[in-house]
């Protein structure tokens, strides 16, 4: 699992293999947003373009100042404090620090970004959609690595179907 090669920020979830006229294989690894922006994915109900652009600009690399100002509204721990002296302050930190914590978790957990396994009773069965998506995406990248494009196409359709549910 790597980062999107275009924005280098989000998780690359779209793995595109193109074969051009000279039979050269071109591989692209993009996040959902970049693949939409490059026109690889048609969105039917996505936001109109200007809104998307604004969102994209807001979501761009936060400045050092912005990171320094990240504070959890619940336990009031700042991201800088967490980086300097360890444990998180409360469960909400995982959301409050999401922009910075995501890559840290990914590095600590050998590239993993999504829980797979047991869920508590309160979370309810069946398994959450994200887990299924994650394992489908894993299968997809395996299929691509194995150059099994027929299977990859099927998996891609399954992913799209699940995502639009």
């Amino acid at each position: 699992m790597g980062l999107c090669e275009r924005c280098k920020k989000a998780q690359a979830t779209f793995h595109i293999t193109k074969i051009d006229s000279s039979n050269e294989k071109l591989e692209r690894h993009l996040c959902e947003r970049c693949s939409i922006e490059e026109g690889h994915v048609q969105t039917h109900k996505g936001p109109p373009l200007p809104e998307l652009l604004v969102e994209h600009l807001i979501g761009m690399k936060p400045s050092a100042q912005a990171i320094a100002n990240l504070v959890c509204p619940e336990c009031e721990l700042s991201y800088v404090e967490f980086r300097n002296q360890g444990p998180l302050g409360c469960p909400n930190d995982y959301d409050a620090f999401e922009s910075e914590l995501a890559s840290l978790v990914e590095r600590a957990q050998d590239g993993a970004t999504q829980h797979i396994g047991k869920t508590p009773r309160s979370f309810g069965q069946p398994r959450p959609k994200e887990q299924d998506l994650q394992s489908l995406r894993r299968e997809l990248s395996d299929a691509i690595a194995a150059e099994d494009y027929e299977r990859a196409a099927k998996l891609r359709d399954q992913i799209h179907k699940l995502e639009s549910e």
Partner: peptide, 16 residues
């Protein structure tokens, strides 16, 4: 518990 991160722990090295 978190839909993405699983069981939440004080240290991210135990999360999931």
């Amino acid at each position: 518990y978190h839909a993405q991160y699983g069981y939440l722990t004080a240290c991210p090295t135990n999360v999931g």
